[in-house]
Design a protein around this nucleic acid. Structure first.
Lengths: 147, 147
DNA sequence: ATTGGTGCAAAGGATTTGCAGTCTA
DNA sequence: TAGACTGCAAATCCTTTGCACCAAT
């Protein structure tokens, strides 16, 4: 990878390498989406990705390809789907174990700092199942006069 | 409430009382839905509620009314919305604090027994927000040969 | 040439909404 | 009767799908 593989920006090469490592053919569209997504930890909806990608203008990417790509990245573990808003899925470029804070009022999703919240206990699983992941979501309201 | 307010069945009177306590006008449709929903702890989708209601046949209930009613019940705290499946919302008639187990493969939602899992810690909240609730979702796969 | 990937538009499914008719208080 | 509620269908919104075209081996 390049010399500046920090969190500010990723070179095409970095993204191509990352995709190949994950067994994904690095097409132009996927690299474009990857550069945006992997630049830093963030939570984006498909719609937001579509908007950002076509603003950067590196390559025209269709809605279908955005969805296909995000699903592919999720299956391959490059992003994590976050299901907290009944109206849309968020894709989280931070794949390390961490939990979320969702503002019900404005639809904002943010991270809970690592270590601030921990899940204790090992529940009995239904027969024939294995754990795929644990999600903790703290739902918050914007403080204001309300019913 | 009636003498048999256990978990097997609820009389219309019980449900009417419950709705009124929550400040909800007990219409025929709402009572019908409530009897089904509050009969025992369960997780139902709007579609399932619609199906069950019109099978019982106490009163014809339209799809729109099922949605309106479930949203109303949720706002008034009679049921809890569970957001775990990106394709639909589950309504949980158990409003006590508890967490869930979601089978990604078959879309099944079940409860984690009380006490088996606990959340520890109090994260810093964004300014101007208050906690509305905490959800813990353990996602599981059906055990089988897979990629 | 073959296989995989993309774009476009149409299809799909869950949920909401508008409005006229109906019921509750 | 007045206001709230319901039903029906149309409208929305997010996401998936079908198919023809383009790209890479």
């Amino acid at each position: 990878m390049s010399l500046h593989s920090g969190q500010e920006n990723l070179s095409k090469q970095d993204v191509i390498a990352k995709l190949q490592t994950a067994g994904i053919t690095p097409t132009q569209q996927r690299v474009t989406i990857g550069r945006l997504l992997f630049a830093r930890p963030q939570h984006l909806s498909a719609e937001q990705v579509l908007g950002m990608v076509n603003q950067v203008g590196e390559a025209r990417v269709s809605k279908a390809t955005v969805y296909n790509t995000l699903n592919l990245f999720a299956r391959r573990g490059l992003v994590r789907e976050v299901i907290v808003d009944p109206t849309k899925v968020f894709y989280d470029s931070n794949t390390t174990v961490h939990h979320h804070l969702f503002n019900i009022d404005d639809g904002t999703l943010s991270d809970i700092k690592p270590g601030e919240v921990t899940v204790v206990g090992s529940p009995t699983l239904p027969e024939g199942t294995v754990v795929a992941g644990i999600d903790v979501v703290l739902r918050v309201h914007s403080k204001q006069a309300s019913a």
